[in-house]
Design a binder for these strands. Sequence first.
DNA 1: TGAACATATGAATAATTGTTCATATGATAA
DNA 2: TTATCATATGAACAATTATTCATATGTTCA
Lengths: 109, 109
Amino acid sequence: MPRLNKAEPEKSGREMPPEELLQDLGDLFKVFGDTTRIRIMYALYEGEMSVCAISELLGMTQPAISHQLKTLKAANLVAGRRQGKTIFYYLSDEHVKSIIAAGYEHLTE
Amino acid sequence: MPRLNKAEPEKSGREMPPEELLQDLGDLFKVFGDTTRIRIMYALYEGEMSVCAISELLGMTQPAISHQLKTLKAANLVAGRRQGKTIFYYLSDEHVKSIIAAGYEHLTE
DNA sequence: TGAACATATGAATAATTGTTCATATGATAA
DNA sequence: TTATCATATGAACAATTATTCATATGTTCA
């Protein structure tokens, strides 16, 4: 395992941010790197939706959506609000939109 | 396969962008979703570097770096400039920085 | 031309991950 | 409580992917 940011600098003299941050960044983008999760986030763009409604909209099984919502929730990208039997999920903050927007701009130049 | 954006709207009445765009977005973020590629992009943040220099900086084999550079190049995130035997890679545009910055902000809130 | 260096490529392996199926948990209403 | 609806979870399978090793391509210099 390479260790950057160590006492002795690399030959290039270039500094790197802490490995942990780079790892976290990779993990975060990994969450965005799946079409199903992107579609879920897009679905929640306009407002909260229940798990059932999302699975119907995307034409996928409920467990598949639940698994992905769990991943999104662990990354603090969505949150859930319980109302009786159903749970409504929504984007947890504006970062989701700005990250997707940044990617969108790259694609459309 | 679910088809959104079709003639008959979903029951929720919610519209989705073209599937192809969502796919492209997922593919783009997938490229950012790997620690090695993130580290390469960070290394190039300050300026161009040769393949050899990158592999030394990251403590990884040259073929491993070449494979990842190919992925980054295919996504138009880096580009190469040949000078004699060596090829210097650099970030191809500012989008790389803005995407990483957007992710960074989410992590550090 | 041939040797040496830098980078790219292909095949194989190992690890990660998304989906499905079956089932469990939790909440509501009768 | 029992039945029903909504969601979560766990195991298994299939598919994707990052890395390594060996080798090929391409460039420079003698």
